[in-house]
């Protein structure tokens, strides 16, 4: 099954299971249904699906209003960059709502991070973590089968506010099924999918496919990596990951965000306090042409990394 098909199926199930859910956004129930993202959505009789006006700032505030009124709102967005128009609401309105503690409802924003590139200067940001960092927002990146099911199940329609984002780069890829995890945070902030003593691989943002592929390449050479995926967008308690790092002494970190303010810096700082035999940090390198329509995919030489990890 493709990533988009799986995401759509899980979301279809979620939106149909909540009472009084207000599903809304541009094109959610018209045309391509956000390129298939919201295809086939149906809510209970007590809920509504609203194909909205093009008013992103207000659509964010609207969701907070529904939440403040005790209702459940889910705002589906074609593109994360559109959320820039809603920053005042994300920060100032959310701050008032949190401070007052009177909002008993639920609000979830579900934007697609358009991370395949070739978008040109205006839609080249895609820094999901920056949105979350700005107002300490709970944010989750969905990258694989287990993530999709658990993150939606635990957070969608639940009291409070969060952003759950999806990767357009993976839309047509087969969804990665990493199987049952070794260890999963109760809020799905991080998950450990493999345990091993030869290296600790940690992936951030939407970089799980890169880290997973590296793990597979290592296993083919007889090495056993520990593989973690951090779905959460701002720093967490790193201790479960650091325990693995102490055991392996080798750390590989992937982060495919374009931000200069990465959550993984916090893990790296903590890990570098440990005596590491090897630490490899792979992040997106922005060339002089980063504002031009270019690919957002990272070019990874897995064989070279495996050799490097095997050398000590």
């Amino acid at each position: 099954m493709k990533y988009l098909e799986h995401v759509n199926a899980v979301l279809r199930n979620a939106v149909s299971s909540h009472d009084g859910l207000v599903v809304y956004g541009q094109n959610v129930s018209a045309g391509s249904r956000i390129s298939g993202f919201t295809k086939g959505f149906a809510v209970k009789e007590t809920g509504m699906i609203i194909n909205t006006t093009n008013t992103e700032n207000s659509l964010v505030g609207f969701g907070f209003g529904v939440m403040l009124g005790g209702g459940k709102a889910a705002f589906f967005m074609k593109q994360l960059d559109f959320l820039f128009l809603g920053i005042d609401q994300l920060v100032n309105t959310y701050n008032i709502i949190r401070n007052s503690k009177h909002a008993k409802g639920s609000f979830t924003i579900l934007p697609v991070t358009v991370d395949m590139g070739y978008e040109g200067p205006q839609s080249s940001s895609n820094n999901f973590a920056d949105f979350c960092s700005m107002a300490r927002i709970d944010g989750y990146a969905v990258t694989n089968k287990y993530d999709t099911e658990k993150i939606i199940d635990i957070h969608f329609g639940r009291p409070g506010f969060r952003i759950i984002s999806f990767s357009q780069r993976m839309y047509k890829d087969d969804i990665i099924d990493p199987g049952e995890p070794i260890l999963a945070d109760k809020d799905m902030k991080f998950v450990q999918y493999r345990d091993g003593s030869d290296a600790t691989i940690v992936t951030f943002n939407f970089s799980f496919p890169y880290g997973w592929q590296l793990g597979l390449e290592m296993e083919q050479t007889g090495l056993k990596p520990a593989v973690f995926n951090v779905s959460y967008m701002t720093p967490i308690d790193w201790e479960p990951i650091l325990r693995s790092v102490r055991k392996t002494g080798k750390l590989v970190v992937f982060d495919d965000s374009k931000s200069e303010n990465l959550s993984c810096f916090s893990l790296l700082a903590a890990a570098r306090g440990i005596s590491l035999k090897k630490d490899i940090f792979i992040k997106r390198k922005l060339g002089d042409n980063w504002l031009n329509p270019v690919s957002d995919a990272m070019d990874i030489d897995y064989k070279s990394i495996v050799r490097e990890l095997s050398s000590q």
């Binding site: 505030g61 609207f62 907070f64 209003g65 529904v66 009124g69 209702g71």
Partner: peptide, 10 residues
């Protein structure tokens, strides 16, 4: 303004 519209929807 949008918070009010959302409250009315709730």
């Amino acid at each position: 303004f949008p918070v009010a519209v959302g409250l009315a929807m709730a």
